[in-house]
Design a protein around this nucleic acid. Structure first.
Lengths: 200, 200
DNA sequence: CTTGACATGTAACGAGTGTTACATGTAACG
DNA sequence: CGTTACATGTAACACTCGTTACATGTCAAG
């Protein structure tokens, strides 16, 4: 059984997804939910407390959704980057990520007001994607690049709404990495045969 | 001779670079410049007019700086992406770009309030970089990817401040493109010899 | 010296902000 | 029924917001 507060949080998330963070105001917010500013303060203590709880709840849910995605991935041949991309632009997840990117930028420009909500953010999943790289390629530069490709393309998607072109760009990047891998001389030298992670 | 207004604009730009857009307020702004809100309204008509003029001035200056960079580039062997990156993270330009990225995000979340300042933005230079690609590679996906790599890495720089690692990632990407180019069978078929841009 | 354009100072207006004081309702438990 | 915890409504507080009315200053041109 959900408490009144949990119900409120759900509705608040919905509102934030549609209205963004930068010009949030209690009274219009309350009115949209059919309640009053008085109530919001009553349940969350302050506007800041409200933001903290709502954003926390959102991050938690996103993290869960992402974890379950990684665990039960149907097609193991699919590249992690593509897998993650498809997840991120799914109608269900897209607005949430969009909001987190807004938060990210606001925090960069105004750490005093927003920095606290940032503890850990996309750093988590960018690392997770990085894990998918063969160990020899898992340099800081490559991991950073991988994360940046995702961030940049997502930003482009937010700006233009062009799902097709941005997804093409994701695939282009994957192709690039593959081709470069072909071109590179094999550095592996210990065992000429078998895969590289050693016996188990 | 600069008019009072032009002087004001210069000071305003300086203030915006340090404080961002999202919580801009006339009175603190005026106080920081040693003037009054009354004066700002007097010169710019409204807060909105002020923002329009200041951001316009900023974009104009950035565009000039970028143009002169492209024209007089010293080392023609340097890759355009790297050239542009170095320009963007230079101490002089970095805060401006940072502000434009904030504007970009705010406009995405709140087109009503900020959309008007966006007419043309980074689309300009991302196209310019794209122009540097050999024609065969200048697909929408590749151009999009190129722009996204820049955006994503700049975002990462804004968040972490790690100039070294992000620059390494830029170089990593350039290397990736080069290696992939090697690996790919040559599509050019018209002339087997000489470079491809034709006689000069 | 007077005129007139530009610049500035003081103070206020009405609206919106987050937050609070105080009173009232609802419903479960003894 | 009475008590108690939770929820809610009404109204206000102190403050900031962008903007404006009105008066005053500066300073060059006639």
């Amino acid at each position: 059984m959900k408490s009144r507060k949990e119900i409120l949080i759900d509705e608040l998330v919905g509102y934030l997804l549609g209205h963004g963070l930068s010009d949030l105001s209690l009274r219009p917010l309350a009115e949209a939910l059919g309640t009053s500013a008085r109530l919001l303060i009553y349940h969350f203590g302050s506007k800041e407390g409200l933001l903290t709880e709502v954003l926390d709840s959102m991050q938690t849910r996103l993290r869960q959704s992402f974890s379950s995605l990684v665990e039960q991935r149907a097609d193991p041949s699919e590249r992690p980057l593509k897998l993650f991309w498809d997840w991120a632009i799914a109608r269900k997840n897209y607005p949430h990520l969009k909001l987190l990117y807004e938060l990210q930028i606001l925090a960069v420009q105004n750490p005093v007001a927003y920095g606290q909500y940032l503890q850990r953010n996309n750093s988590n999943w960018s690392v997770l994607i990085g894990t998918s790289l063969p160990e020899a390629e898992r340099t800081p530069a490559m991991v950073t690049l991988l994360g940046a490709v995702f961030d940049g393309l997502f930003l482009e998607l937010m700006s233009t709404g062009d799902r097709k072109r941005t997804t093409q760009a994701v695939l282009q990047f994957i192709r690039l990495v593959d081709e470069a891998r072909e071109a590179r001389p094999v550095v592996q030298r210990k065992t000429a045969k078998a895969s590289n992670t050693g016996p188990r």
